[in-house]
Design a protein around this nucleic acid. Structure first.
Length: 840
RNA sequence: GCGAGCGUGGCGGAAUGGUAGACGCACUGGACUUAAAAUCCAGAGUCCGAUAAGGACGUGGGGGUUCAAGUCCCCCCGCUCGUACCA
């Protein structure tokens, strides 16, 4: 019988489906475990990133099931978003049609991977039955003040008359039109994540199951800073400029003021000063991307206005409008202290402004460290901390400033001027203003007859959709034509999975039983935004009494990218790996036979053509091989390289395992060990028990590649085990059956089939995780390296826990040790059972 | 620019501060075969040495802490992710 994955994989997928093997139901007698992988955007077909993500999740789900947990493992579709709209424009297919056919296709592919999902809980965010609930959530947020409208800057394509996503801005130009992008002010809906900033920050400390790097990134993103507001009086005016600073102690080193081009004062100035207006317009010719803004050269415009120094009335500071000051941070204005800030220093040098050191230092300026203050009147002689306190006290006394905490995090703009998203349930009435849509009228669904030919927002362009009556006064009114950011949908889908109840978003019992998600798995690229928005959303829903959850994800694992070698022809054209023929170390194009240059290993991307289609791998080798390779090569949190030879290695291993099990004799009872166990059998059992221990540990620690290595190692030992009598057979059957249980979460189809071949009636998916017998692992001897000056000169095997004196004696009998130990050692370091080091 | 992470043989990667390179891939030799593939057995970081014993070197680069550093600290280089309207 040959290993034929296409037959057995289909067989077991059907069986699991028939038996409802992975259906999750509340069971108060069992501990629950909720495993979730980030749901995919239905782009058309699954790619290797999905295969990796879902293989990791499936391993956890199946492992936890074997551990006796009641496992919830659902899957759905993050189906609103920009690509559907682009497809509509390019291929003239309606977003809903395109999206749903993608979903169908991808669902078939996911099923072929043999993932243990409870498909009864499938959801799709573009379904009105899903998004109707978030319209209600938005109305609750609106009524409680969490949602509000404000003006913001967007990327505007003046040719297409449309708002561009940052992604659609390439080198400052619209991706389709090529027109220079402008910043445009536009009103949009925002959620007050800033009200929750402090709580979101503090609670990071309690996310013990999260990677430190993600927590650090979130802390930095929220960016709490303690500082002060200082009000500067504008000369010859009653106007004041409020600035925010984290270093009020350097106030005597202030030599200029800089305000954002979007600052209200900048606008006032530009009304009277056409050059200022030109400068502001110049600043607006940049994308809204932070990286672009920061990398752009720093410019300032001297407004010729001055302010007085708050503590030295005769000192005048020039007021600049500067392109690097963000209106969204602090107050949109700063004072510049060139001596102690790099950016201020660069700016002052460029515009020949004074540089006044106020902290004593021998180092060159700008000096960014702490120290004793000079040139600072009442702050002289103080260190930084004391000077900050002292300065704030004085500001308070004079009524010109105060202590202030600001956050870097900005409120979440949820408005998108697009069709393929959830409509925002607000109506604008000339009489009544903003009016929320009455809950009885939800959901507000998208019109199906939409044209994507005209530029701009299709909902706004639609001939009838936006026209309606005001729910309050019944007069003609207009609907909000913005739709939600798709992060809105992904901020609560995990809670919705606990119960797809048609009448309410959540049910109390299901939430209480299943939430929070015990293990969430997805790409690092979501480390901040999606994960932070989800944490915020839970709190916002709690605030409006919809849910009683704070932290949605108990434990988080982030996976690395799937990479592959790139290939280029001589004339710099990318070539698909599929079209490559390898001869020795050289590569050739399969059609043209021309030599091809092998490039770097990079993240799989369509543009570089270094993609391998999972579908093809599954067809050629089966899902188990694909899954096994995904797990075996790299630890989950690191990037991995997809290699053909690696896949073949996995394929070979599964074949070897198959042949070995199929050819075993006397497969009747795998649970009976012989009454007397021979030494060689004892050794095998010992390896098995330490493997169970190590595999369990590796899985718990998310080091799946180590788990794979341990299992392979156990198999190598069984494989070379001498089978000479019936006792040996019994032991090998005992070991191999447990090996199958260990490997089942990785390669469930072959594990099921071999389990069945061993004579088992029940599915291996219902089998519990093998237990470790520590008696088999106990060691009597231990190998200890003997070092001289930290270099290993011999290794001795001694009884475990042997006393230091005896170990030293044995060590000193080693010839090679004595060779390097020409005088008596200065010091002897003995770490019991570990190491002996003679220091000469 | 800023924030975060990563860097170990030819390659993917193992290593509670305690024998660096587990396991796998590629490779080499052997068995089987008319031959090849597949499979099985064995070898292997680099250099010196004899193919041995043994030694020197070796975890991106430079410095430091320690009896002992891939692991801890400082500086630098390279790559990757995020940077708020891609998901």
């Amino acid at each position: 019988m040959k290993y034929n994955p296409s037959v057995i994989e289909k067989k077991w997928q059907e069986k699991w489906s028939e038996l409802n093997s992975f259906k999750a139901e509340i069971d108060y007698n069992k501990p629950k475990y909720y495993v979730l992988e980030m749901f995919p955007y239905p782009s058309g077909a699954i790619h290797m990133g999905h295969v990796r993500n879902y293989t990791l999740g499936d391993l956890v789900a199946r492992y936890k099931k074997a551990q006796g947990f009641n496992v919830l493992h659902p899957m759905g579709w993050d189906s609103f978003g920009l690509p559907a709209e682009n497809a509509a424009i390019e291929n003239k297919t309606h977003p809903s049609k395109w999206t749903n056919s993608n979903i169908q296709n991808m669902k078939i592919q996911l099923k072929q991977m043999g993932l243990s999902y409870d498909w009864g809980r499938e959801l799709s965010t573009c379904d009105p039955d899903y998004y109707k609930f978030e319209q209600k959530m938005f109305l609750d947020f609106y009524k409680s003040g969490i949602a509000y409208k404000k003006e913001t800057l967007v990327n505007w394509d003046p040719v297409e008359n449309t708002v561009l996503a940052n992604e659609q801005v390439v080198d400052g130009r619209g991706w389709r039109s090529g027109a220079e992008v402008e910043k445009k002010k536009m009103k949009g809906w925002f959620l007050k994540i800033s009200d929750f900033a402090d709580e979101l920050l503090n609670e990071i400390d309690n996310l013990s199951g999260w990677p430190e790097k993600v927590k650090t990134m979130q802390r930095n993103w929220i960016g709490k800073s303690n500082g002060a507001i200082i009000k500067f009086s504008l000369d010859n005016s009653s106007e004041k400029i409020s600035i925010f600073t984290t270093r009020p102690d350097t106030i005597f080193g202030a030599t200029f003021i800089a305000i954002s081009p979007q600052h209200p004062l900048a606008k006032k100035i530009s009304d009277k000063d056409s050059k200022a207006d030109d400068f502001i317009k110049f600043c607006e010719k940049n994308s809204t991307k932070e990286a672009d803004l920061e990398k752009a050269e720093k410019y300032g415009y001297n407004t010729n206005l001055t302010v007085s120094h708050p503590f030295k009335k005769d000192v005048k500071l020039k007021v600049f409008i500067a392109n690097f000051i963000l209106m969204d941070y602090g107050t949109g204005a700063i004072f510049g202290c060139p001596a102690h800030d790099q950016r201020d220093y660069d700016f002052a040098t460029k515009y020949s402004l004074d540089i006044i050191p106020v902290i004593k230092t021998k180092e060159s300026l700008p000096f960014l460290g702490d120290g004793i203050h000079i040139n600072s009147e009442f702050l002289n002689g103080l260190n930084t901390d004391d000077a900050i306190k002292s300065c704030i006290k004085k500001l308070n006394e004079l009524g010109i400033g105060e202590e202030k905490i600001t956050f870097r995090i900005r409120d979440w703009g949820v408005s998108r001027q697009r069709y393929w998203g959830c409509p925002i349930p607000i109506i604008f009435c000339d009489n009544c203003g903003e009016v929320p849509v009455p809950e009885d009228n939800l959901p507000i669904t998208l019109p199906e007859d939409t044209s994507f030919d005209i530029s701009g927002n299709p909902l706004d362009n639609h001939p009838t959709w936006k026209y309606t009556q005001c729910p309050k006064c019944n007069k003609n009114a207009i609907r909000e034509t913005d739709t939600f950011d798709t992060f809105f949908e992904s901020s609560w889908y995990f809670a919705r999975f606990t119960d797809l109840n048609p009448s309410s978003a959540f049910t109390k019992d299901a939430i209480k039983y299943w939430m929070p998600v015990d293990q969430y798995i997805g790409g690092v690229e979501h480390a901040v935004m999606h994960l932070l928005y989800s944490r915020f959303f839970m709190r916002a829903l709690k605030h409006v009494n919809t849910l009683d959850i704070e932290e949605p994800f108990n434990s988080l694992q982030t996976q690395g990218m799937v990479c592959h070698q790139t290939f280029k022809t001589k004339d710099e054209k990318w070539v698909f790996p599929n079209d490559i023929i390898k001869k020795g170390n050289e590569h050739f194009h399969s059609n043209t036979k021309e030599p091809v240059i092998a490039g770097r290993v990079e993240k799989m991307s369509k543009s570089k053509k270094n993609v391998v289609d999972p579908q093809q791998i599954i067809e050629e080798f089966g899902a188990d091989t694909a899954r096994f390779f995904m797990l075996s090569d790299s630890p989950p949190n690191r990037d991995m390289e997809w290699s053909d030879s690696g896949v073949e290695g996995s394929w070979r291993f599964l074949n070897k395992l198959w042949k070995f099990v199929i050819s075993l004799p006397n497969k009747n009872n795998q649970n009976k060990l012989p009454t007397i166990i021979s030494l060689q059998n004892k050794k095998l059992l010992s390896v098995m028990h330490s493997t169970i221990k190590d595999v369990t540990k590796a899985i718990e620690e998310f080091h799946f590649n180590i788990a794979v290595a341990q299992i392979r190692n156990l198999f190598n030992v069984v494989f070379s085990h001498k089978i000479e009598n019936n006792d040996d057979v019994k032991v090998v059957l005992f070991v191999i059956s447990r090996l199958l249980v260990l490997i089942n979460p990785m390669v469930p189809h072959i594990a099921e089939e071999l389990w069945y071949n061993l004579g088992n009636k029940d599915s291996i998916s219902n089998e519990s995780w093998p237990k470790v017998d520590l008696d088999y692992i106990k060691k009597s001897n231990v190998k200890i390296p003997i070092q001289v000056n930290g270099k290993v000169r011999a290794v001795v095997e001694v009884p475990i826990n042997l006393n230091n004196k005896d170990i030293e004696e044995i060590a000193l009998k080693e010839e090679n040790v004595l060779k390097f130990l020409n005088k008596s050692p200065k010091k002897v370091i003995i770490i019991p059972n570990r190491v002996v080091n003679f220091v000469v």
